[in-house]
Write a protein that binds this DNA or RNA. Structure first.
Lengths: 231, 231
DNA sequence: TGAATATTCAACCGTACGCTTGAATAATGG
DNA sequence: CCATTATTCAAGCGTACGGTTGAATATTCA
């Protein structure tokens, strides 16, 4: 019943060895962080080292590991070396990875909750107080979930820009209004990143406390029409 | 500009440490293979060890690593321990992982090509000879790509069953006819697995030589209608 | 109770990994 | 040409990992 020739075994072994190459690439926390940062755009080694809070040589060799796995590409620009994701698919993979971790590892929620509980919630804004300000046009609500999830239901008047497209579509957001980002679930990992990115780019940004399912639980209206945001 | 408090650093570090937990889980080739096998259904430790060609204790501790990362679950059934994927999302993640490796690592294609070139192609069937036999109803053509890719274009009269649903939907395939599976691209990793699974289950199965893009290049008709296969 | 069996535990070995440190290698600018 | 700067190379250190081997732990069945 089993056609388990040794040739077939060798074939499988070398195949899975390749698959594990990309697994190894995301086996180190700092490398995942680097991929995440690169998902927001190309950066130099020094910049990445600073953002990830590691030494420059350390960042360099992490990047070389990622390059060996073909997940990032290096391009020499003058005195600097600019690293970038090798492919959009890499970004999607990292998103999938984070999503799986968030879905399966209770620790992720626990850690995020502890962090924001400790700091009270200086950048968290309750949906209740928000809904009125949105009506008055004082604030832009940003949905950073994947487009499908947005379509399944979102905050009234929210603009949909998935987290991995945010960098490229920043110009769609008005700079003069505060931006409130949200993501599904009580621990909004993506929203945190979105807020950080927005602040880096000069926006006034906060994150929303609760996600879509919670609104439903509260009986809020959940729109299904797509609005704002072009391209 | 950077609100890089040490608290925030610690938060990020512990968060990415969690993400890397699932990275570490797929950093070993044999663990990826085990996940792949479990994607086809629950199995005992001994069965997995046999299929992956490793010792039972080795399989056991690999499975414990996967269990620590919450990717698999163990359920005691009598004298055996039955392992299974903890969630469908895990299966999707593995598919994404394989897909990324296949897309980015030329070695994957090279290895697969070398394997099937060496063995001639005993289980490979050319699309040319196939198209007539399909018309005559002598053979079932199986599209194991994700449903979206199927919708984007597929072999005439092909039945769509994504590889990760194949196990559950086997009964949709007629057992009396030969099954020819295919996947996009010249190296059909998924197709190979599908063929193996089908043969295990008593089907007569082969894989198709070329994928959708190649048909287009050859000017074949590529249908867009969904046919066959229910739920 | 006791034999049989599936799985896990525990100790061990060689290697690879992540990180640091200090020197070497490009590329730019005076 | 030399100083400067960004990056990489190279060596070293402690730890963790993948795998083997043999014993210990359940659970079933007689």
């Amino acid at each position: 019943m089993e056609s388990m020739t040794t040739a077939h075994r060798r074939f499988k072994d070398s195949l899975y060895e390749q698959f594990a190459r990309v697994g190894k690439a995301v086996a180190a926390p700092k490398r995942v962080e680097l991929l995440d940062l690169l998902g927001q755009g190309s950066r130099t080694v020094e910049a990445l080292a600073g953002l990830a809070a590691i030494s420059v040589p350390n960042a360099s060799q992490h990047l070389q590991v990622l390059r060996a796995a073909r997940l990032v590409e290096a391009r020499k620009r003058g005195l600097y070396v600019e690293y970038s994701l090798a492919d959009d698919e890499v970004g999607h993979f990292v998103v999938t990875l984070r999503g799986l971790a968030a879905a399966r590892l209770a620790e992720v929620e626990q850690i995020t909750r502890a962090h924001f509980d400790g700091r009270g919630g200086p950048d968290a804004v309750a949906g209740d107080e928000l809904i009125g300000r949105v009506r008055r046009g004082e604030v832009t609500v940003l949905d950073v979930q994947p487009a499908e999830e947005y379509r399944a239901g979102h905050f009234p008047r929210a603009v949909s820009i998935p987290i991995d497209e945010l960098k490229a579509r920043l110009k769609e957001l008005p700079k003069d209004r505060e931006v409130v980002a949200y993501r599904r679930g009580p621990y909004c990992v993506m929203a945190v990143e979105a807020v950080e990115l927005l602040r880096q780019k000069g926006f006034t940004a906060r994150r929303m406390e609760l996600g879509v399912p919670n609104w439903r639980a509260r009986g809020w209206r959940v729109a299904t029409v797509r609005r704002g945001a072009g391209a």
